[in-house]
């Protein structure tokens, strides 16, 4: 996060050698590859989405309330999938945001150095667990707990996905929030402590407000991960494509729809193109969330 000031001036004249120039051009060419890939992703998503709208009007896709891709009277309405994603994401946010805030405060402001050095790798390991393993645990363990706790017929519901996704989002949220908290100048804390505030009061009234935009960005990046997570929700949310706002209902997210149906769907059919259109919508949604977080982070740096 912290950029070291670059000593660009004195090094500059060395560039004149032709060998150096070539190396720079080659590296720049390879670096531009990520720009190319991002462009290609968008291009190919559009290329495979647009043919849908020859058969099926765009407004009907965006506002349709039914998703029935294989019936005789096909319906490609995005709304039930969109609400599925919103419900699961909302549930995950309610669980993970307060937890992430508490843990970030503990790691950055309370825990002694040694404890912090132990906690951070643990968070990394938590982030490293593959999403299919989380889904597996949700299927085997969490669904039984939820079934028992709420007296449901099946534990495969939005709540199951929300809990698992909250766990998966936490490492991102905590790590980035902690970065934001640690970027607050030490002098702010000293000033507050010198005024007689306790460390706790300093955290709540000085450190936390100063790191506000960085923490917000951290939460958004975590939720961006939640929106795009596929395997876990595919395995544990029950996958009923209907509009519901209850966490205890079976829901189907946009990602789960793509993963579940693309494997069985013949290439080039309207169904195939509809799944790409869902993918394009997903891409644009996560792009917007990431861009907003980026703007917030820039504000933080200033």
């Amino acid at each position: 996060m912290n950029r070291r000031p670059r000593a660009a001036g004195p090094l500059r004249p060395r560039l004149r050698g032709s060998e150096g120039r070539q190396a720079e051009l080659v590296l720049a060419g390879l670096a531009s590859f990520s720009l190319l890939v991002l462009g290609l992703i968008f291009l190919f998503l559009l290329r495979e989405s647009l043919p849908l709208f020859k058969h099926y009007p765009l407004p009907a896709f965006l506002t349709g309330t039914e998703w029935q891709p294989t019936s005789t009277n096909v319906r490609f309405g995005l709304i039930p999938l969109f609400t599925g994603t919103v419900v699961v994401t909302f549930g995950a946010a309610v669980i993970s945001v307060p937890l992430a805030l508490g843990v970030a405060l503990f790691v950055s402001e309370v825990a002694p150095r040694r404890v912090r050095e132990l906690l951070k790798p643990c968070l990394e390991l938590l982030a490293a667990i593959p999403s299919v393993v989380y889904g597996f645990i949700g299927l085997l363990v969490l669904s039984d707990w939820i079934k028992g706790a709420f007296g449901l017929d099946s534990g495969l519901c939005a709540l199951n996905g929300s809990i698992l996704l909250a766990v998966m989002a936490l490492p991102t949220m905590v790590t980035l929030s902690e970065d934001a908290l640690r970027a607050v100048p030490e002098s702010y804390r000293h000033a507050s402590l010198a005024m007689g505030a306790s460390r706790w009061e300093t955290m709540v009234h000085v450190t936390l407000p100063s790191a506000r935009s960085g923490i917000l960005a951290a939460m958004m990046l975590g939720l961006g991960r939640v929106i795009g997570e596929t395997m876990t929700v595919l395995m544990v949310t029950g996958n009923a494509a209907h509009i519901s706002f209850s966490l205890l209902d079976s829901v189907r997210t946009m990602t789960a729809t793509i993963a579940a149906e693309m494997a069985e769907c013949p290439w080039g059919t309207p169904h195939y193109h509809a799944l790409f259109a869902v993918g394009t919508t997903l891409f644009l949604m996560t792009f917007a969330v990431n861009a907003a977080a980026d703007v917030l982070l820039r504000k933080e740096v200033r």
């Binding site: 998503l45 997570e229 596929t230 990602t255 792009f287």
Partner: peptide, 11 residues
């Protein structure tokens, strides 16, 4: 880094 993995799959 923020593109969902299923979108990479589609791509």
């Amino acid at each position: 880094a923020g593109v969902p993995s299923v979108v990479y799959g589609l791509f």
